[in-house]
Amino acid sequence: MRQAPIPGAHGRVRPLTLLGDPLLHTPCKEVTDFGPELARLVEDLFATMYAAEGVGLAANQVGESLRVFVYDCPDDEEVRHLGHVVNPRLVEVDGLVFRGPEGCLSLPGLEAGTERYDHAVVEGFTATGEPITVHGTGFFARCLQHEADHVEGKVYADHLTGRRHRKLMRQVARASWRR
C-alpha cells in the first residue's frame, strides 16, 4: 500500500512576513489559476509552517498576496486536522466566545488573550479546484478564524482593544525581530 505524501515534503521554506509589512494589512487577491504554481505555493506554505512550528499559515505570511492558507491543527479533543483552503470564506462562526492565548508566526514569540468563537465553518477550494467545506471546533475553530483573518488583511492584534492591545504593541516594539 502506498503511503500518502507528506505535505510540504517537496516545498521550500520561505522567509516569514512580519508585523509592520503592509502586506499583512492588505486583503489578498482571489486565486484564479489552479495550476502547478498554486500547488508549489501550498507545498511551500506547509514546509514553512512546519519549519516555524506553527499550526496554520496564510500566503501573505510568505509574501504572496493570494487567498490561500494551510493548517495542521488539533481541536480540543486532540483530533488532528490537516489541509489547505484556496479562496477561503468564513461562512459561519457561532457557539461560545472564549478568550484564549493566540500567537502568530508573523509576530514570533508573542501572544495575547484573543476572543474567538468555539465553532467556525470555512468554505473554499482545494489546490485542484474542488469545492471544500471545513468545520472546526475549539482550538481548530480559533485556527480557522485566525487564518481567514489573514487573507482579509487582519492579524489577531487587530481584535485586541485597550490594555491588552497596548501591552502587545509594547512587546512588538521591543521584539528582537523588529530591529
Rank of each mutant, 00 (worst) to 15 (best):
R67L: 10
V85C: 13
V155C: 01
V70Q: 05
V134S: 02
A120N: 09
P27L: 10
V155M: 05
G35D: 01
I6E: 14
G138I: 09
H81L: 10
M169Y: 07
C104D: 02
E30L: 13
Y156G: 02
G113E: 11
K154S: 12
H135Q: 06
D118Y: 00
G35T: 03
A47N: 05
S65K: 04
V172P: 12
G8R: 10
R179L: 13
V31I: 13
R116E: 00
T128Y: 07
V85R: 12
P36I: 08
C143T: 13
E115L: 04
R89E: 15
E130L: 03
G63L: 00
T137G: 14
G8V: 08
P36M: 09
I6W: 06
V134N: 02
V85D: 09
H165K: 15
F140I: 05
E130H: 07
R89P: 02
L144K: 00
A47F: 04
L105P: 03
D94I: 00
T126G: 10
D149V: 04
L41T: 14
T48K: 03
G54D: 03
R170M: 10
P27F: 10
F125T: 13
E92N: 07
R116P: 02
E92T: 04
D94S: 10
T114S: 01
G54Y: 06
A120K: 07
R164L: 09
L105V: 02
P15R: 15
G95Q: 03
Y50S: 05
V13D: 09
V68D: 02
E123G: 00
E102Q: 03
C143R: 07
G11C: 12
R2I: 12
V93R: 14
H81P: 11
T48P: 08
M169H: 11
Y50D: 08
V93Q: 14
W177Y: 15
A112S: 12
T161I: 08
V42F: 09
P101H: 09
V97H: 01
V79I: 14
L90Q: 13
V70H: 07
R174H: 14
L16H: 12
Q171E: 15
I6M: 06
T126W: 07
V122N: 02
V155I: 06
S176T: 13
M1C: 12
C28E: 10
A173T: 12
Y156D: 03
V121R: 00
H84L: 11
G20R: 09
E64A: 13
C104N: 01
A141T: 00
V31S: 05
V70T: 05
L82G: 04
E43M: 09
R14L: 15
A157N: 08
T48I: 03
L23D: 06
D21M: 06
D21H: 12
T17G: 12
L23A: 15
L110T: 01
N60A: 11
L57K: 08
E37I: 06
G162V: 04
E53S: 13
E77Q: 15
G113C: 04
F34D: 08
G136W: 00
R179H: 14
D149W: 05
R12P: 05
P88E: 04
R99F: 05
K29M: 10
R116G: 00
